[in-house]
């Protein structure tokens, strides 16, 4: 292992003092690891379970995309429940049509059980605030080899799952604006900017929908 940029790497051979410094560094690193372990363990105990950052991000993304079809996520963040009641709640939502696979439901359940347990603090950040904090610089699939071609038939289904709760059946509007024949469809720059990064009350979907899926939605909306 190399410690790039550390004071011991002076380009010469290993002197006595360097050996001493190195062992000091090893000790410091070991102490840091130990401290890290202690802090992490304490944090895990506080969270009543382990949530890896990648898993947390997946759970947050799923909650944002799937639960918010019917209700905003503030309803979730205000709960402080034991694991058994979370289990029943997630099962009930699945039964009612929450669009989660078994594996996805398990990820969501693990997250809410760890984060919103009976002993958790009264005030916790919103799902959207947490998503913003953990957002990667790009969405699930940005790279594309050629221009994206939206497929209208797929777009209808993706719209129904993700957008319809606010923009209404057939994109005729609801809590959010009517998108059928909306002039934003002719201005693709604004359309993509709004979908990827959100605008006003509309959340950002860049971390939830792939570019292909957004193209599909656009293609379908253009037929409305």
């Amino acid at each position: 292992m190399e410690w790039v940029g550390s004071p011991v790497c002076d380009g010469g051979g290993m002197s006595k003092s360097m050996t001493h410094k190195t062992s000091g560094f090893v000790l410091a690193a070991w102490l840091c690891t130990l401290l890290g372990w202690v802090v992490m363990t304490a944090a895990q105990e506080d969270d009543r379970g382990t949530i890896q950052p990648a898993q947390a991000r997946q759970a947050l993304t799923l909650i944002h995309a799937r639960c918010a079809v019917c209700h905003t996520t503030d309803l979730i963040v205000q709960q402080r429940l034991p694991a058994d009641r979370w289990t029943v709640t997630v099962e009930k939502m699945m039964h009612w049509g929450a669009d989660l696979s078994k594996d996805e439901a398990a990820v969501v359940l693990q997250f809410v059980t760890a984060r919103y347990h009976s002993g958790a603090p009264d005030h916790l950040p919103s799902i959207e605030e947490e998503l913003a904090l953990t957002a990667p610089a790009w969405g699930p699939s940005t790279a594309s080899d050629g221009p994206l071609v939206g497929v209208s038939e797929r777009g209808a289904e993706i719209f129904a799952r993700n957008c319809q709760a606010c923009h209404g059946e057939g994109a005729m509007g609801g809590a959010g604006p009517k998108l059928a024949r909306n002039k934003i469809l002719k201005n693709e720059g604004v359309f993509w900017e709004t979908v990827l990064h959100g605008r006003g009350p509309m959340p950002a979907w860049g971390a939830v929908l792939s570019h292909q899926e957004i193209s599909d939605i656009h293609a379908w909306l253009a037929t409305r």
Partner: peptide, 16 residues
């Protein structure tokens, strides 16, 4: 977040 929540509410309330 603060602003967007308020704007969201305004939209919702105007919408209804």
């Amino acid at each position: 977040m603060t602003v967007s929540r308020r704007e969201w509410l305004r939209t919702v309330l105007q919408g209804i």
